[in-house]
């Protein structure tokens, strides 16, 4: 379980101090699929980095399973960034091995299983620049899954892909989520993706970001793309759009 207790974040440099996140309170259940959505530049990424422990909140506290994130504990969390951030000098397999390598685990632990999971068996010995954008992002997902994280943070991971690829990866992500059951926090600017993927959607206001609404998506699970055609789905999308604009 993840709990955010009156989180504030202020950006500070010599000239300005800018309040980007104001008093966010959230609690996210284990195994839940949460999307965070809001106007661009509102601080979604900052919020994700706070949860990841890459940034410190100016005020407030973040608890992962009742432990503060700033304590150096081996939390099982992984991040998938907007760019795949693959190391160009490593083969696909070696890129996926990176988390094992950095944590002094057996190099091949879980590697083939995850390569298989994202369907890249044929490309394990290729270099990143030989793969398309969608395949590179698959590698990033496999890498993020290698340590079997209980929390997966995703920062607009598919935003640079075309719609066909995005839909395909959304489906694969749901399949992976169903199989491994991590908690997923998914930052996106696509309302349709958020509704399609999530249990709950957190809508943020523009800067400074506050929680505007929290919306439960009561669509049946094992969702297929056709669900986007239903009236119910479109009602959710419309409802959110009206609150973001």
């Amino acid at each position: 379980m993840i709990e955010l207790k009156n989180i504030h974040k202020t950006w500070q440099n010599d000239k300005i101090s800018l309040l980007t996140i104001e008093d966010i309170n959230l609690s996210i259940n284990k195994g839940e699929f949460i999307s965070i959505i809001g106007p661009s530049g509102c601080g979604k990424t900052t919020l994700l980095k706070l949860i990841a422990g890459l940034l410190e909140p100016t005020k407030g506290q973040i608890l992962l399973n009742d432990k503060a994130t700033n304590q150096k504990s081996p939390q099982r969390l992984s991040i998938v960034f907007q760019n795949p951030i693959l190391l160009p000098w490593r083969k696909i397999k070696e890129n996926i091995q990176l988390p094992n390598e950095l944590n002094n685990l057996p190099l091949n632990k879980n590697v083939y299983e995850k390569i298989h999971l994202v369907g890249l068996q044929e490309f394990e010995n290729n270099y990143p620049d030989e793969l398309s954008g969608g395949m590179q992002q698959r590698v990033a997902i496999a890498r993020a899954l290698i340590l079997n994280p209980t929390l997966l943070l995703m920062d607009e991971p598919f935003s640079s892909l075309d719609e066909v690829n995005r839909n395909r990866l959304n489906l694969e992500l749901l399949k992976i989520w169903k199989e491994l059951r991590p908690t997923i926090i998914f930052v996106t600017h696509s309302i349709s993706d958020a509704v399609f993927l999530s249990d709950r959607i957190i809508i943020l206001t523009k800067r400074p970001a506050k929680v505007k609404e929290i919306l439960s998506i009561d669509l049946p699970r094992s969702r297929k793309l056709e669900i986007k055609e239903t009236l119910e789905f479109q009602r959710y999308v419309k409802w959110i759009r009206e609150r973001i604009e």
Binding site: A52, G53, L54, P74, Q82, I85, P99, E101, L102, N103
Partner: peptide, 26 residues
């Protein structure tokens, strides 16, 4: 090195030495 790459290594709890040999030097 891009900030995101540092973030990736930090999120994987890489040591300073690992960041140097596996990221900055290559």
């Amino acid at each position: 090195v891009e900030q995101e790459s540092y973030d990736l290594f930090r999120s994987l709890s890489a040591s300073k030495w690992q960041v140097f040999t596996k990221l900055r030097l290559p």
